[in-house]
Computed example of a mutant assay.
Amino acid sequence: MRAVIWTAAVIFVLDQLSKYIVVHMMQLDRKMQIDVLPPWLQFRMAWNQGINFGLFSNSAETMRWVLIALALAISTWVWLWMRREAQPIRARIASGLLIGGALGNVLDRVLYGAVADFLNMSVPGIANPFSFNVADIAIFAGAIGLVLFAGDGKDTAKAGRTQG
């Protein structure tokens, strides 16, 4: 369980630190856009009240608490799953990514009423209108990692020792 805890903690801190630096210290919340390596990377402020790409952002206050509850329920379920069944280290790290990212976005919803998204990546000739954050990357990577690496609880402790 140490891998889950440490991974979740590192992701949570990286997410919140990056948001604090970019949104508050660099004042992205006032400037709304900062070109870093245009068009490849920009900081573009977006307060996301829904889920990915702003989906389900209607009834913002109600949806805010529904999404907080959902993120906490999923994080708790993943935590209990990792505690209950022996899993390879890669699955435990993936669960830490997912939990740390989910808790980072939960804190945003509690503090601001929305998730602070600021990373925007495009390519020449194609402008991406969507922004994301470190927590979103971790949640996505964690979900993919769980699909790829989590076992059914049988023989995975042995596999975890041999795979690293």
Rank of each mutant, 00 (worst) to 15 (best):
I93S: 03
L103S: 05
K31T: 13
R90M: 13
K154A: 09
Q163G: 12
N128L: 02
A86H: 08
A157K: 14
I51T: 12
L28T: 08
A46G: 08
A135L: 01
F140H: 03
Q163V: 11
W47E: 09
M121L: 13
L119N: 00
I144C: 09
A46L: 11
A138E: 06
M26K: 05
M1G: 15
A91I: 07
P124Q: 04
M45R: 12
M26F: 14
V110G: 02
E85N: 12
K154E: 11
M63K: 14
W40F: 15
I5R: 13
S57W: 07
D35C: 09
P124I: 01
A157M: 08
I11E: 08
I5G: 13
F12E: 02
F149N: 02
V110M: 09
V147H: 10
I144F: 08
I74E: 12
L28W: 06
R83Y: 06
R83C: 06
T7W: 13
V110F: 12
M26S: 04
L55K: 06
L111K: 06
V106Q: 03
L70D: 00
G142Q: 12
S122W: 02
N128P: 00
I34K: 04
R44Q: 10
F149D: 03
T162R: 14
D136S: 08
S57G: 13
F130V: 10
P39Y: 01
V4F: 10
